[in-house]
């Protein structure tokens, strides 16, 4: 689907007044990935908002990325409870497995690894979100396994 059409669909689904902007951006972020300049231009123009305004709104929210992200966003909880349960080991395992550092995206554009604030599963840390899916009580191995399974599903081999 073209950007313009996707944006149109998202607006039709959400409504086109200002209070629907978040919903529009959320739908597009999940359908098209990164909120690129081309996408936000389209959103602004179709909703009759200033482009900067739409950009400013998106950048307030850490899940509405405007910089390139992979197909899968891996967000490891950085809160103290998960930290105490050794989330750093999980992060390092993923960094080594994916050959990227926190904040980066794999070359194939498949995974972005970030840390995020409290995911609300403090009693079963460490936890991470992979897109909208939550994974709890991680170990370095189980985290890597989750990623490997996604790779298999995606039919990508290294």
């Amino acid at each position: 689907m073209s950007i313009s059409l996707s944006v149109k669909t998202a607006i039709e689904e959400s409504g086109n007044s200002r209070e629907n902007l978040m919903s529009v951006l959320q739908i597009i972020r999940s359908d098209l990935g990164t909120l690129s300049p081309a996408i936000l231009t389209e959103v602004a123009d179709q909703m009759g908002l200033s482009r900067a305004d739409v950009y400013g709104t998106a950048t307030f929210y850490s899940f509405l990325e405007t910089t390139p992200v992979g197909k899968y966003s891996i967000r490891i909880c950085r809160s103290i409870s998960c930290d105490m349960k050794n989330k750093n080991a999980v992060r390092e395992a993923l960094e080594n497995h994916l050959f990227i550092k926190k904040g980066e995206t794999t070359k194939d554009g498949m995974f972005t690894l970030t840390e995020t604030n409290c995911l609300g599963h403090c009693h079963e840390g460490p936890v991470m979100l992979v897109n909208d899916e939550i994974h709890t009580e991680l170990t370095p191995d189980s985290a890597v396994k989750i990623i490997e399974e996604i790779r298999i599903r995606e039919g990508v081999d290294e």
């Binding site: 007044s17 902007l21 978040m22 919903s23 951006l25 929210y61 509405l64």
Partner: peptide, 19 residues
């Protein structure tokens, strides 16, 4: 969409308004 401060009720309302 990932902003702690949006739990504050007036920030929440701003966010509901798409801001």
């Amino acid at each position: 969409s990932g902003a702690y401060v949006c739990g504050e009720e007036t920030a929440l309302i701003e966010s509901m308004e798409g801001k």
